[in-house]
Amino acid sequence: MADSTDILTVKGLKAYYRMAYFGIDREVRAVDDITLSIRRNEVYGIAGESSSGKTSLIKVLAAAIRPPLEVVDGALTYRFGDIEIDPYKASSEEVNAIRWKHLSYIMQGSMSVLNPVRRIRHSFSDFAFQPMGVDKKTFWERTRAHLERLNLSPDILRAYPHELSGGMRQRVTIALATVCQPEFIIADEPTTALDVVVQKDVLAMIRDVQRQMGSSVVFVTHDMSVHANIADRIGIVYAGRLVEEGPTRTLFTAPKHPYTAHLVGSLPRIGDTTTKAALEGRPPNLADPPSGCRFHPRCPLAIDKCKTEVPPLETVGQSHRSACWRADEVKPLAPVAGQPAQVTP
């Protein structure tokens, strides 16, 4: 399956939060048996409702896990030029050598990722000077040029984080993560806390950076309309599992998993006044997930088989995979006329 255009391949990845406290052992299976690959020069969206394990998954991808989260099983391999590396098998020096230069990560909650008591320029020199591997003068020239390319004034280098607005801080974080022109960028909900106008700017910025540098972006958000705007392909995560994956347009027009159908169908559309049927029930508790298909308690199509047997993720179309026993019977919830109305690429 490994393709020469794949920059990252993930096989059977499992990562659990393992906790023991005052005699109670808990195991939250936040990433459970995920297999996927990311191509060069694409934006891969990861979608799913909150607490479905999106952040956990990409923390594992970014080699950014902390106890109690630990990788239990599986393999993941990055290919940067002629470097081939599995961060969980490599030494920490090897991993540090690829960080920022090849692989950078925009954490969830970017409002608080900048050191509050130091000026922005210190963050740039701390994070990027060493990976860039040039002398001071060139470093600052490149940094300024990069900021200007992203329509940011180099003056922000002198500011403190609290002096910037939320959207501004998010843009600075993106600039910080991309200043070394990495081949692989992981972004966790970078637009979630922003209002719609700012959101659009930030999305455009990410898209620009990606086009200019030809890098791969893994973009996480629970908001399907954002995905429609930015992603080339989307993976849908439900309760720690990848339940469907395919090109954006395919998922929006012909989903092959009832959960995707629900996510897509519940997007508001211009001129559509029908009330949307909310999905019943709650997202499952990952410490004690339902047997069989984890979606079965909330699934309108569920049959007995779904309660006992886990559906495998199988190819259902061109680069389109779905994990549903009744994938063929899934219908889009609402008649779709093209794409959702907000989609204006």
Binding site: Y21, P67, P68
Partner: peptide
């Protein structure tokens, strides 16, 4: 320690 969930987390993390 019993009251503060953060120190609980740390205890697990320190293992």
């Amino acid at each position: 320690e019993y009251i503060d969930p953060r120190s609980r987390l740390r205890r697990m993390g320190g293992a």
